[in-house]
């Protein structure tokens, strides 16, 4: 008897494993969605509505516009789920591709209304925004301590020595987390770009 409450058991807790969504989970959501399981859409919404909404919010003039686009994106995703090939891409990249199209629609409509000619500019900007938000989302997926290490490197501008000192970790561990995390973010961007084509 080690504890007052039931002693924790060393086991692969389902909760612990859901801390960070594995690629397997992402693929499973894609398969379920393509198979027409509406709970997979709810799952995708829970997981990626922030991603979609943030991209929309940064690309469009008002929060109401961003919510409209987010709504359209998930409804489009549901209605075109048969076109989604879970073997060829993943759900967040696909949702972002839809998001960019809906945002482009929005800009086009607005340009028609006020006859502005900044659409090409807006498209480039939208691509950057979508990349930035994808990277931010991937940082959120890194798990710890990788996530914290990257935050310290990105946003606190600490060197790997300073991070190692702050977290009392070996230099090699910090370096290797940094390399792997940057690679993960790069892969995420590649998948996102492939889906946008």
């Amino acid at each position: 008897m080690v504890s007052l409450l039931a002693p924790p058991v060393r086991r692969a807790s389902a909760i612990c494993e859901t801390r960070f969504m594995s690629d397997l989970d992402v693929a499973e959501i894609g398969r379920q969605l393509a198979a027409g399981d509406e709970s997979a859409l709810a799952e995708a919404y829970q997981r990626w509505s922030r991603l979609v909404y943030t991209v929309a919010l940064r690309s469009l003039p008002t929060a109401a516009d961003a919510e409209d686009v987010t709504q359209t994106v998930f409804i489009s995703a549901w209605r075109s789920r048969h076109n989604f090939n879970p073997e060829a891409g993943n759900v967040p990249a696909w949702l972002l591709a839809i998001t960019r199209r809906r945002i482009a629609d929005h800009h086009r409509k607005r340009r028609d209304e006020v006859s502005l000619e900044h659409a090409p500019e807006a498209l480039t900007q939208d691509a950057d925004i979508s990349d930035q938000v994808s990277v931010a989302d991937e940082i959120d997926e890194l798990g710890e301590p990788a996530g914290q290490i990257i935050r310290l490197a990105f946003f606190d501008d600490l060197t790997h020595q300073q991070i190692a000192h702050k977290l009392d970790m070996p230099l090699g561990t910090v370096k290797s987390h940094i390399r792997r995390s940057l690679q993960r973010m790069r892969s995420r961007l590649e998948v996102t770009h492939a889906a946008a084509l």
């Binding site: 509505s49 922030r50 991603l51 943030t54 987010t70 930035q132 931010a136 940082i139 935050r151 990105f154």
Partner: peptide, 10 residues
């Protein structure tokens, strides 16, 4: 990007 904490919930 502003980092993961800058992502906004609808």
């Amino acid at each position: 990007s502003g980092g993961p904490d800058s992502l906004v919930e609808p």
